[in-house]
Design a protein around this nucleic acid. Structure first.
Lengths: 208, 208
DNA sequence: ACTTATTTGTAACTCATGTCACTAAAACAT
DNA sequence: ATGTTTTAGTGACATGAGTTACAAATAAGT
């Protein structure tokens, strides 16, 4: 059933390529909160997400972290592809947020398929493109926006990704992802509640 | 002599490819301060820098700008390649900082060469990789660093790129690139001078 | 039910940065 | 040389956001 799943999730890839992928890849399931990649680590394979979701973030020496983006089923980690191609150390951290199934493809294949399969070529390029866009967006956020706007943006994005308008996170968790502090987030959320933008519950924020 | 120049600057590319590049590309020289790409504009060709330098930056609605990186001879604009591949609108601005000669390659070639020339493939991928790294760095800066550290970093990078330890910029210009204000930069530079990190001149900052 | 741990609310304070208002110095122009 | 423009210096103040220090509310464990 995993095979079918792959075919479905990566339907934009050619059948012949999908066969190769399943032949060469290893399917692995990680529990929630598992670290898949850490700063400075060398990457030995590219990961295609089949199920669940993966948080990709930057980490600062003194503990702070900073959310970059989430990887969803059907997506690949752009960095792992880039790093793999140059066998360089990763600059980022990746962690599962829920139980996540990934397909691990040895890095030798990536280059090979680029030349052999047009659909793989487009897949890889659009992966780059999308991540690049997301980084540009992120830079906009931190360069031009205040925390209240960033929080608003964060909540909406989170809601969209999880396809719900109730964000099941504590203020503490949100603060960490935005590299802020819990009190600041609580304060801003209270303001948003007064403006009837959200309703606050324990461990949950409801968007209106 | 431009041909020789190209061969020299892009020596990592195969001779056959270089021939194709010169056959298909158009060499163009722009004066200093010319806008090569603006937000929302569609990109019709990729640019390889032959001489001079190009500033790539993000622009905010209310005027603020934000330096992303400089392109030097031998480099290509990663975004133009990505956008070209998907004929999407650009999200960034690019401006010459001095008189700059570029080689404009029609976007149809990019994809074609990826399959035909290994050296082009590696060139494009390493372009992505380098820009990606630079964006990651930038995010670090704005997410984790204060303005004094960012200024210090900015000055050192500028010095390194121009291969001099005198930065010939006004405080105003620096402020714009860091999306700050002139007074703040003046203040911080004065502090750096008191700590004997720099010597301030009019329109110039000397690193020690 | 009682205790404990987790999560949230809030006030007071500090600090970095941005803004306003104005002065001073240097470069340029006529 | 004198007036004008550009660049730099500086103090006073406003604001956003991080910090400290608690209190209150809610959930969880025994």
């Amino acid at each position: 059933m995993i095979m079918e799943n792959i075919n479905h999730i990566f339907s934009q890839l050619e059948p012949a390529l999908l066969e190769e992928i399943t032949a060469n890849g290893v399917v692995k399931t990680f529990p929630a909160g598992e670290t898949l990649m850490r700063t400075g680590q060398f990457i030995k394979s590219t990961m295609l997400i089949l199920e669940g979701s993966v948080k990709v973030f930057r980490e600062h020496e003194d503990g702070g972290e900073f959310l970059m983006y989430y990887l969803q089923p059907g997506e690949a980690c752009a960095l792992s592809i880039i790093c793999a191609a140059k066998s360089e150390a990763s600059q980022i951290m990746a962690k599962t947020v829920e139980e996540t199934t990934v397909l691990m493809v040895p890095l030798g294949m990536i280059d090979k398929w680029m030349l052999e399969y047009k659909s793989w070529y487009h897949f890889v390029l659009s992966t780059y493109r999308n991540r690049f866009d997301e980084l540009l967006n992120l830079i906009d956020q931190v360069a031009f926006r205040n925390m209240d706007e960033r929080l608003d943006f964060y909540l909406k994005r989170h809601a969209k990704i999880n396809n719900t308008n109730t964000i099941a996170l504590s203020h503490q968790q949100i603060a960490e992802e935005l590299n802020s502090s819990r009190e600041v987030i609580s304060r801003l959320l209270k303001k948003m509640e007064q403006r009837h933008m959200v309703i606050l519950h324990r461990n949950a924020i409801e968007l209106i």
